[in-house]
């Protein structure tokens, strides 16, 4: 199983969100084998289902896809027990990652992407609290500078810029948008909780 930093970060962040309240159970919504295998490694005791019918205080959704996202979200939005939601999304840039090049089948078939996911959540019971993107904006620039030093036969400087890139890998808010892989954190809005 390949492991790009983008997907490692995304999966780790879901893991951290699930541990924030260890007493609260986690359920995973994952349709594709890639995510099902990835979460089986990280959260072996969490139930995994392909639809939004799982009910647990904390939900991980990996990942919304165009034909099914609205239906899954409708199930999630039922005012039941789930209070927090962690969504992994990807965009076309993810297709250059080893997971897309070597995993068969690919991690997703028709990813909704960060824009589509935020649009989908708008006006629903879910309030977006944070968006994290991995390898966006400044980290891409640092990575390119590292490549330039590599081509100039300065592997020492290429390595330094590589680590500068890694240090800037996680971007949040609007800076996360061009990232190949992102994580959206949401919680159930108060009105929906009471309703």
């Amino acid at each position: 199983m390949p492991g790009s930093l983008e997907y490692q970060y995304a999966l780790d962040l879901c893991l951290l969100m699930s541990s924030a309240a260890p007493s609260q159970a986690v359920a995973i919504i994952a349709q594709r084998p890639f995510y099902r295998a990835a979460f089986a490694l990280r959260l072996p005791h969490a139930p995994i289902s392909p639809t939004g019918t799982s009910a647990a205080p904390r939900l991980i959704w990996a990942e919304p896809e165009q034909p099914t996202a609205a239906a899954v979200l409708a199930q999630l939005s039922q005012p039941e027990v789930s209070q927090s939601l962690c969504i992994i999304t990807s965009n076309w840039l993810a297709r250059r990652l080893p997971e897309w090049r070597t995993a068969s089948p690919a991690p997703a078939h028709a990813p909704l992407g960060i824009t589509g996911t935020l649009r989908l959540l708008r006006g629903t019971a879910w309030h977006v609290t944070q968006v994290y993107g991995f390898h966006a904006g400044v980290s891409i620039v640092y990575g390119v500078i590292g490549q330039v030093w590599h081509r100039l036969h300065r592997p020492d400087l290429a390595d330094r810029w590589h680590f500068r890139m890694q240090a800037a890998y996680v971007q949040c808010g609007w800076r996360a948008w061009p990232a190949p892989v992102s994580v959206v954190l949401a919680r159930r809005a108060r009105a929906a909780q009471s309703g």
């Binding site: 930093l5 490692q8 970060y9 962040l13 893991l15 951290l16 699930s18 541990s19 924030a20 260890p22 990280r42 994290y132 890694q166 240090a167 890998y169 996680v170 949040c172």
Partner: peptide, 15 residues
């Protein structure tokens, strides 16, 4: 012994 830290501030979102 735990598989995940109980607390991990975003300053430690670092690999």
């Amino acid at each position: 012994g735990a598989a995940v830290p109980d607390v991990c501030d975003p300053v430690l979102y670092l690999k």
